[in-house]
């Protein structure tokens, strides 16, 4: 009775609503599983581990080739063509690590450790950004992934291991300001003040392309502006604005920080 009543058009619903999607979905499923295997594979042959920890609103980066924990921040340097194991953690709220041009995102969750493997296929600078809403300055939590040839990467690591270079002239005054103003309570500069981890490691801060977690171009002017005005530039950040520093001190500090690379 059913068939007579509906004529021959039941096939339309069954074909269009059931068969067609099932066929298309099956094909899509096979294809996307293939891609997923390719994306997720290579975990075992990753030779290098980089550990990134999310903070409100910056990134703590530790390079770990063979047990050496070398700390840096807000920039992830990677060798081209080598699968890198990226270990993701969070110190406060949930963040998400995302470099659209290199790989999909992975969340950083307090109390948990997530892992992903990324391979940069070409050299270049790629913008990354926190993809999980993490508070007031979530839009200002970016970074750069810098993919370099493997030999450059080795040189970069060697360079990174050293202490901050000694300086003379006005910049040396900047180092005093750094210590006097209490910056070392939160920031480490290897060879000057070590151990503090509440803020980004500044050992090579002047060598980064950007300031404020991938947001502003790095130069002495913006460094001075940043220190005096953090809370305006990045509301909700844990660092207070150091507007009370005198002009010359501020300039010296910025000059010194800019020289760290």
């Amino acid at each position: 009775a059913w068939r007579r009543q509906t004529g021959g058009r039941t096939w339309w619903i069954l074909g269009g609503g059931v068969v067609f999607p099932l066929v298309v979905l099956a094909l899509l499923f096979v294809a996307s599983t293939g891609v997923l295997r390719a994306v997720a594979g290579g975990r075992e042959d990753a030779a290098l581990t980089i550990e990134v920890t999310g903070h409100q609103f910056w990134w703590d980066v530790v390079y770990d080739p063979g047990g050496l924990a070398i700390r840096d921040a807000n920039e992830v340097v990677m060798p081209v063509g080598v699968p890198v194991r990226i270990v993701l953690k969070s110190e406060d709220v949930i963040h998400s690590f995302w470099v659209p041009k290199v790989a999909g995102k992975m969340d950083m969750i307090p109390g948990r450790v997530n892992e992903t493997v990324m391979t940069a296929t070409e050299a270049g600078r790629f913008r990354g950004q926190c993809a999980e809403f993490c508070g007031l300055s979530h839009p200002l939590m970016a970074f750069e992934m810098v993919a370099v040839p493997p030999d450059h990467f080795r040189a970069f690591l060697e360079d990174l291991q050293g202490d901050a270079a000694d300086v003379a002239g006005p910049a040396a005054r900047g180092r005093e300001v750094f210590l006097e103003a209490g910056c070392a309570a939160c920031h480490a500069v290897r060879g000057v003040a070590e151990g503090a981890r509440l803020g980004p490691d500044l050992t090579r801060v002047g060598g980064r392309a950007a300031l404020g977690a991938g947001m502003w171009p790095m130069n002495e002017g913006s460094l001075a502006g940043w220190i005096a005005d953090v809370q305006d530039m990045k509301p909700g950040a844990n660092m207070p604005s150091y507007a009370h520093l005198s002009g010359p001190d501020l300039r010296a500090l910025a000059q010194w920080l800019g020289s760290l690379r």
């Binding site: 009775a1 059913w2 009543q5 039941t10």
Partner: peptide
């Protein structure tokens, strides 16, 4: 019932 039953079975 018969009508809907047929529908359910064939779907």
């Amino acid at each position: 019932g018969g009508r809907t039953l047929a529908a359910q079975e064939s779907s």
